[in-house]
Design a protein around this nucleic acid. Structure first.
Lengths: 223, 223
DNA sequence: CCCTAATATGACCGACTGGTCATATTATGC
DNA sequence: GCATAATATGACCAGTCGGTCATATTAGGG
C-alpha cells in the first residue's frame, strides 16, 4: 500500500547528531512557516549555516527533504497515539477517545511546527504526493476507530441504527476539529480553547466526549 | 469591524461583461488551482488573453485581484445561505441545519473553485489578511447559530447542561467537515459521499442531523 | 478632423527560486 | 607522508515571479 519515500543519504545519517538535528529543525520551521512551495532552501541553508551544495548531498532534492520531515512526523504521531492507547487499552470506547484527544493536545504543545506542516499537507493542493501523505496519518486513527465502533455496536454500547461509517465520521470530525481549534484559535467557533487553563481545558474535553456519547449511545439509555 | 478591501478600478468595472467575467473566471481558476502564493499573474494574463499591464490597470496588484475574488465569494455565500434560511425560517433548529447543509452542497456543486479558494484561505498561512477573510465567511453561520442554540435551550429543545459554545462547536464541526468531505473525498473518513447518488446523499444528511439531534436533545428525550 | 484623455500593450526590471558543478577541504587507509 | 575517497563549498545557471513604464491604440467631444 504505502509507496516508499526517498530516504536521506548516508552522508546525512552519519552527520553528528547536533548538526543533523539543527538542519532538520530549521527545515521543519521553514516548511511550517511557508508551506511546501514557498519554503526556501536558500533560507534553510542560510539559517542552518551549511552550504547549498551540502543540502543536496544530504537529500536528493526539495521533495526528498520534505518527505523525510513528514516521515519523522508520522513516526512521532504513531508513538504518541500508541502510548495513549496503551494506557487506556482496557477502558471503554469513550475513555479511549478522551485519551486520543489528550495525546493530540500534548502533541500540538510539543511539536507545533510538525502539526502546522500536517495541516498544510491536508489543505494545500500543491504538495507532492499529498493524498498519499495524508492517508499515512489518517489511516491510523480511522483503521483503529472503525473496528472499535463496530465492536461497540455489537456490545450494545453504540446505537446500531446508524452506519458505523457515520459514527466514525462524526467522532473523527469532532476530534480533529477540536485539535485544529486548539492549534488555530480562529477555528474554534467561540470555544476559546487557547484561553482556558488546564482545568477548563479538561472540562471542555470531558464535555465534548459526553456529548459524543449522547449522540452515539442507544436512545433512551442516558449517560 | 470589517476593514475595507481595495476595490477594482473603474476601468475594470466598465469592461464589457464578457471580458470582465472571463478574466475573473481565469483568475478564480488560477487561485483555486495553486493557492495565493503560487498563483501566477503571468498565467492569468496569458489564459485570459489580456496584456500584463492591463491587469494592473484593473487591480492595484495581486492582493487587489485576490481580495476582489474573495469578496465575490462571500457575496455568493451570503446569498446562498440567506435563500436557504428564508425557506426554512419557520422550521425547527435541526431542519434549519439541514437546509444549511443542502445550501452548502449546492454551493460546492455550483462553485467548486470558490470553495477550493476558501479552503486554501482557511488553512494556508501566507494568504494576506487571512484571519480577517476567514472571519468574514465564518461570522455569518456562527453569529446565526449561537443565538439559535440559546433559544433552543430556553425552549427546552436543546439540553441546557452544556455551554452553548460547545453545542455550536460540535454542530459547526460536523457541518463544516461534512461539506469538506463532500468537496474533498479523502477527508470523508469512509463515508464516500461523492460516490453516493442523490437519495443516498439525502439519507446521509438526514442521518447526520439525526445524530446531532440525539447529541443535543435533553437526555431521555428520544428522537 | 483633430486633440486629448482613457485604455491597451508587452518588453523589461530586480529579486528570488530550485538545482548544478568545478573546486577546496577533510578523513581514511597504507 | 601520500594517494584516494568522502564531504563541504558557494558562485553560477536558467527560469519564474510580481510589478513598471514608455509607447501604441482607441474613444469621445468640439
Amino acid at each position: 500500500m504505502l509507496a516508499i519515500l526517498p530516504n536521506p543519504t548516508n552522508t546525512f545519517c552519519n552527520l553528528p547528531a547536533e548538526k543533523r538535528e539543527r538542519i532538520l529543525a530549521v527545515a521543519v520551521g521553514e516548511f511550517a512557516a511557508n508551506g511546501y512551495q514557498k519554503a526556501s532552501l536558500n533560507n534553510v541553508v542560510k539559517r542552518s549555516g551549511i552550504a547549498k551544495g551540502s543540502l543536496y548531498q544530504y537529500f536528493e532534492n526539495k521533495e526528498g527533504l520534505f518527505f523525510h520531515i513528514f516521515e519523522c512526523f508520522t513516526d512521532l504521531v504513531k508513538d504518541s497515539a500508541n502510548a495513549a492507547l496503551a494506557e487506556a487499552a482496557n477502558a471503554d470506547f469513550f475513555a479511549q477517545l478522551e485519551a486520543i484527544v489528550w495525546a493530540g493536545i500534548r502533541f500540538i504543545d510539543t511539536h507545533p511546527d510538525y502539526f502546522q506542516i500536517y495541516l498544510r499537507v491536508v489543505f494545500e493542493q500543491d504538495v507532492p504526493r499529498r493524498e498519499e501523505l495524508v492517508s499515512r496519518v489518517r489511516l491510523f486513527p480511522l483503521e483503529y476507530m472503525g473496528p472499535l465502533c463496530e465492536a461497540g455496536q455489537r456490545a450494545g454500547a453504540i446505537r446500531d441504527d446508524i452506519e458505523p461509517a457515520m459514527a466514525v465520521f462524526l467522532v473523527d470530525a469532532a476530534l480533529e476539529r477540536f485539535l485544529q481549534a486548539y492549534a488555530k484559535p480562529y477555528l474554534d467557533s467561540g470555544l476559546r480553547l487557547k484561553e482556558k487553563n488546564e482545568q477548563q481545558l479538561r472540562d471542555a474535553v470531558v464535555t465534548m466526549i459526553e456529548v459524543l456519547r449522547a449522540a452515539l449511545v442507544p436512545q433512551g439509555q442516558g449517560a
